[in-house]
Design a protein around this nucleic acid. Structure first.
Lengths: 343, 343
DNA sequence: CTGAAAGCGCTTACAG
DNA sequence: CTGAAAGCGCTTACAG
């Protein structure tokens, strides 16, 4: 019952068991032989004292944190649940800890910014999309912090493994479907966040599809959606309230979450999906099949992306080189919001 | 360019700046006066060397981790996204780190189990539902680890703050609605996980409503749902395949996620919601209003629960005593799955 | 197989 | 205002 600290340390158990701390440490880590009798004494004392090793001391001595960091842009999208589930699964399987933080680097200047995650508290990081700028990523990389990027490609020449999803071809196919099968010609594109890669490639796919059919690109049909339900809702609402907005017959929502906002905005002005306007999304979130009408979208294996990313990070930590680029396949899922009948 | 470690330490900057490490430390923490000239030198050297303080060393010296732990049962339910968002918000606002882990204590014996989270790596823990047994909680509590329980009440006599949601009255009202307004009399209850409190109180509410109307409780109408979509689906499917299963006219899904599984199972055997069977849920997840038909349910302020819990934990860490019991109000949300018309 | 001792990178009385 | 030194709780050569 000492005054200074209520917690029992390795010294306490060593003293109590009549051995050196080195021996206790060895027993604990099973990394050097310890005789039977001593082992028993130590084990017993540890239980009596309910000893639990102080992780930070161990981390300091070993210069290894045994934890990986996950940097996200936010948590307000159902997209993140499966991503987290995938990551957490492999992290815990490896016996590691998972530190989760959100970070919007574009929001604040670089001066004196202390990042929530970095080499000071993790052995490696999973960096989602735009949670870090290219410059910040480069800085971490220069200091040799193991990283893998998720839904984000490193800057040219920077060799950081990344795992993402096929965006362009799938988007092109989706928009092509709208054009070819449903005769759409005035398709609104609800963009994702500025400078976001998924957003970028989905737009490229959209443009390619238009091009394929000789439909001119119309800037007035490009709206800001941010991959967020509320934002998409508000943007479309504003667009619709404009007395003479350009005509349109479909909207490519950017992602499923935005599609929901779009459904709402459309409904409020009495436009029916898909009769009056066709809507398609991206992600195939858990919700997509249950919307009214069920959402035609692109399936992205988000949980799998989480798992791959985590695996690759561990490969890095273990000294082997994972593939630099991992692009998971996506698949068009036809449901009814595009105008198709029940499948 | 030393061999041993690529990272620069406080000694390096002290040496380079021609001051003692104590001074660097003081400058860093701004907790003791440092003269202008030295401050400038130090600042400059820190930048030159790109110095970033080693968190673990600091944690060890201060005996404070500056991180809180969140223990979950799993991540495969959309319920967790808003919970995490609420928690992460206040944690990062406080400048703390968030360690996330999942844990199913009922699955393995207590022998030699090393918990992923505890006093060895956190300053305090947020414990969700049954991620820990009462006994395990008691053990952590005995060692004075600050904790707040989420959607879980401490064992009798154990004084640990908890934040949860009103389950019983809301469930009673919901079931009463089914009986009174829609004339249901054979209502299936899809239970949540075994021994789970939310599940327990929702059942109590269900029974109370039955009682209010003199409807006898029928064990054969109680099904296992686990608050999981797949489980609920399978259980109901099995039930329906039984050649002479008891008749029923409604199902109280336990939670919204289970409700989705129920929709599916019902649809597959050609039963329509709400015409043939009424369905109600609990949580009011983001998905609920978009289901077909829109789900009548109970709104639980999950993100707010996350915020409260985190706030209370910080109060504990700051030495003040938060309220022991925080029960957030819930509210019945009538939509169409119960048979009501568009509201 | 076991122990004494140095070291991991910080902080903070204590003395000046 | 500043520095020398002890301490936080571990691990691991080094010597036996």
């Amino acid at each position: 019952m000492t005054k200074r600290s209520s917690s029992v340390t390795i010294r306490d158990v060593a003293r109590q068991a009549g051995v050196s701390v080195a021996t206790v440490s060895r027993y604990l880590n099973q990394n050097a032989p310890v005789s039977e009798p001593l082992s028993e004494r130590i084990q017993q004392v540890m239980e009596e004292l309910a000893y639990v090793p102080e992780a930070t001391a161990r981390q300091l001595a070993l210069r290894k944190k045994h934890t990986i960091g996950l940097l996200l842009t936010n948590l307000h999208n159902d997209f993140f649940a499966p991503l987290l589930a995938g990551i957490e699964g492999v992290v815990s399987e490896k016996g590691y800890n998972l530190l989760v933080a959100t970070c919007r680097p574009h929001l604040y200047s670089d001066n004196g910014v202390q990042f929530p995650l970095g080499s000071h508290n993790t052995d490696g990081m999973l960096v989602f999309a735009d949670s870090l700028t290219d410059e910040q990523i480069a800085r971490f990389h220069a200091r040799r912090l193991p990283m893998v990027l998720i839904h984000k490609t490193p800057a040219p020449g920077v060799q950081i493994p990344f795992v993402t999803v096929e965006n362009k071809a799938a988007s092109r196919k989706l928009v092509d479907h709208l054009i070819t099968v449903h005769g759409c010609g005035r398709i609104i594109l609800m963009r994702g966040p500025e400078h976001q890669e998924d957003s970028y490639w989905r737009e490229i796919g959209y443009r390619a599809a238009l091009d394929d059919h000789g439909i001119p690109f119309d800037e007035s049909l490009i709206l800001r959606g941010a991959f967020e339900r509320e934002v998409a809702y508000n943007t479309l609402k504003t667009f619709l309230q404009e007395p003479n907005h350009p005509p349109f017959d479909a909207v490519f929502a950017g992602d499923d979450d935005a599609a929901i906002g779009i459904y709402d905005a459309l409904r409020e002005v009495g436009l029916r999906v898909p009769e009056d306007v066709r809507v398609v999304g991206f992600d195939d979130s858990r919700m997509a099949p249950f919307l009214t009408p069920p959402l035609t979208t692109v399936r992205a294996p988000t949980e799998q992306v989480g798992r791959s990313a985590a695996h690759h990070l561990f490969q890095l930590l273990e000294g082997s080189l994972p593939e630099l680029a991992t692009v998971h396949a996506t698949e068009m899922i036809i449901r009814q919001s595009c105008g198709c009948q029940d499948v």
